[in-house]
């Protein structure tokens, strides 16, 4: 297995997982699950960028894109989940 083919396989795996995560994040109707997948997609994207020799941007994407963006979306997802449970199930939580 020459150096080059190993690299191509590695790139292939990276890209396929990236696209798979993106598809999963987009297609999942449940808000919380979508946000989780989106955070995972963000982290994986920073991994891909690290592979493309862009460390600064990878760090920023991990910290801001996946981290803070994810946290904000998580808060929104929890609020969306809370109102949807309140509107249809009368909301079990106090």
């Amino acid at each position: 297995m020459s150096q080059l083919t190993l690299l191509i396989i590695f790139d292939g795996v990276l890209l396929v997982t990236l696209l798979a995560l993106a598809f999963a994040a987009v297609l999942s109707p449940e808000p919380r699950r979508a946000v989780m997948l989106f955070i995972a997609f963000g982290l994986w994207l920073s991994l891909v960028w690290a592979r493309l020799r862009a460390p600064d941007v990878a760090l920023a994407e991990a910290a801001i894109g996946a981290g803070l963006g994810g946290a904000l979306m998580l808060a929104a997802a929890r609020r969306a989940a809370r109102t949807s449970t309140r509107s249809d199930g009368g909301g079990d939580e106090a």
């Binding site: 993106a22 994040a25 987009v26 109707p29 808000p31 979508a34 946000v35 989106f38 997609f41 963000g42 994207l45 894109g65 963006g69 979306m73 929104a76 997802a77 969306a80």
Partner: peptide
């Protein structure tokens, strides 16, 4: 929320 995730993915 799905629209915002979509926008972020397009941007990414």
């Amino acid at each position: 929320l799905r629209k915002i995730i979509a926008l972020n993915i397009t941007g990414a």
